[in-house]
Amino acid sequence: MKYRQLGKSGLKVSALGLGSWLTYGKAVEDKTAEDCIHKAYELGINFFDTANAYEAGKAEVVLGNALKDYERSSYVVATKVFFPMGSGPNDRGLSRKHIIEQCDASLKRLGLDYIDLYQCHRFDPSVPVEETLLALDDLVKQGKVLYTGVSEWTAAQIQSAVDIGKDYRLHPIISNQPIYNMIERYIEDEVLPVSNQLGLGQIVFSPLAQGVLTGKYKPDASLPDDSRAANDDTNMVINSYMRNDVLQTVQKLNDVAKELEVSLTQLSLAWILRQQGVSSAIIGASRPGQIEENVKAVDIELSEDTLQKMEIILEEIKDFHPAR
């Protein structure tokens, strides 16, 4: 495994992290989830990402149970706050009340004394950014949180947060967690350049486009019965990928992977990890074997000729914008 600085902070995270969205506490049995977490740890992954909203806290419980036997200093846990955790008017968002209460709740579910990285899961236009940042700063001062970050914030929102943090002399946010893969590349326009300038690292999720970039979905073919696309009608993102032009492009990328004698999964992850400003790519896994395959991507170096060939292929879907 290789490790990278998270932005300009001193925190080092594995180039691949293990996430729990749509899997742990839901689609994957707890024992299998723990086996995946243990395999990831054994292979050098030290970064584990979750959120309070993932199955109403169940994913945090599963993660905490799996990590409890390891030395606390040997891993980095990231969780998030924003989405509804109840029916009350204060059970959501980025108010001071919700942030403080949910931090305590996440710590209890995880069974930890502190959270390494606490992230604002989305931007909350109903709450002054100052209130949100001051609440996060207080958690850092109390030792409940070591670092803070955001997820899916725009370049302008990130810039504003950094400026306000400097004005108030707060502990700075160090990361942003956006979706990023060869199909979904919006962060390249503004988010990446601004984040690089300000010192925020990117922790990207859905690097395999929720399985599309593994090559298992074929153009002009029915969906595999056991696939996410066939069994999750509410997932607008993956459903929007199910277009022949997108799937045909993916098959061409698979040809490039075969030429390099790597899997399309490994090629897709290596393509992301070569991007300046990406600190870690969050993979998902429903069985340990997937993690064993994925970690091999950290050693793949893509030549300029290969990157250019891939870019020509990706030009075919440059105007495609998945549902977000």
Rank of each mutant, 00 (worst) to 15 (best):
N254E: 07
K216G: 02
A40H: 13
D91P: 00
G10A: 04
D124Q: 12
Y70D: 03
V250P: 07
S263N: 09
K141G: 06
P172N: 09
H321R: 15
A53L: 02
E190C: 00
R109E: 04
Q266D: 13
R185T: 12
L264E: 11
S263Y: 10
L67A: 03
P224T: 01
Y217D: 10
R96H: 01
L273Q: 13
K252R: 08
V204N: 07
S227G: 06
Q202I: 01
S14M: 15
L6H: 15
V145E: 02
G64L: 09
F82H: 13
I173M: 10
A229P: 05
I203K: 05
M310I: 13
R122I: 02
N244V: 13
Y75A: 00
D138S: 14
G86T: 07
M85S: 05
E101I: 00
R287L: 00
I99A: 03
S9I: 05
E293A: 12
Y217K: 05
Y168G: 00
Q5D: 13
K141W: 00
V278R: 07
E188V: 04
P224F: 01
G7S: 14
N294C: 15
A78P: 04
Q102E: 07
Y118F: 09
E42N: 14
S268K: 10
A135W: 02
V140G: 01
K318F: 13
K218I: 11
N176R: 03
H321M: 11
A66F: 04
M310R: 13
N52A: 06
E130T: 13
A285G: 06
V76G: 14
Q308K: 15
N244E: 09
E259C: 07
G201H: 08
R243W: 02
L133C: 14
K68A: 09
L67K: 08
I283W: 12
V194S: 07
S227H: 01
E301D: 06
N181Q: 09
G201F: 03
N231A: 05
W153N: 01
D167N: 12
I99P: 06
P178V: 00
T234M: 01
D167I: 03
Q275W: 00
H121C: 01
Y241R: 15
A51S: 03
L110T: 06
D319F: 11
N239A: 08
I158F: 03
K258S: 02
N52G: 01
